[in-house]
């Protein structure tokens, strides 16, 4: 697990300082931190709480309420599999089983090589082309097991292209 170093701390402080006067600043701040650091470190909570004159518990309550927010660093790539009605009716359960087997991890887990984190999601708004998954920021529709395997292979190939 990556440490919450001085640089990350400073980044959180800057984000909080910049956004704390917005009305309802908590969510924008949490989003900004997660966008910048991939997750919200436990040590960031007291900085956010202090900036907003709220308690650690309140910030913790908000973070845990929204499934979107992570408290552990994600893998290099995040794959979300939709489990909502339309996708289920188009076979997402079978896809889900395949995904877990292929990656060797369950939901909310990260593969041992830190490459892929797997998360469930409830509707990506792509029902017409179900079942859907999201790979990092990209939604992919009509996913079959073989299409999924192809996607994962592409990911790992990219991973090897060290820039």
């Amino acid at each position: 697990m990556t440490a919450f170093n001085e640089q990350s701390r400073q980044q959180v402080c800057d984000i909080v300082e910049e956004m704390k006067d917005l009305p309802g600043a908590m969510l924008p701040i949490l989003h900004a931190i997660q966008d910048a650091q991939g997750y919200i470190h436990a040590d960031a909570v007291s900085i956010i709480a202090d900036g907003l004159a709220q308690s650690r518990a309140e910030v913790h309550g908000v973070i845990t309420f929204y499934h979107h927010f992570r408290t552990t660093p994600p893998g290099k790539h995040t794959i979300q599999v939709c489990r909502a009605e339309a996708c289920q009716s188009m076979g997402s359960r079978q896809l889900e089983a395949h995904v877990k087997e292929k990656l060797g991890i369950g939901f909310h887990q990260t593969s041992a090589d830190q490459q892929v984190s797997l998360e469930p999601v409830y509707c990506l708004g792509n029902c017409a082309c179900a079942p859907s998954i999201q790979v990092n920021d990209d939604v992919v529709g009509r996913v079959t097991p073989s299409k999924f395997d192809q996607l994962v292979d592409q990911l790992s190939t990219q991973a090897l292209e060290v820039k």
Binding site: Q54, S55, A57, E58, H60, G61, T64, F65
Partner: peptide
């Protein structure tokens, strides 16, 4: 007025 408690999760 301490705000030490919260509901965790949903």
């Amino acid at each position: 007025g301490t705000f030490a408690l919260t509901i965790d999760g949903r």
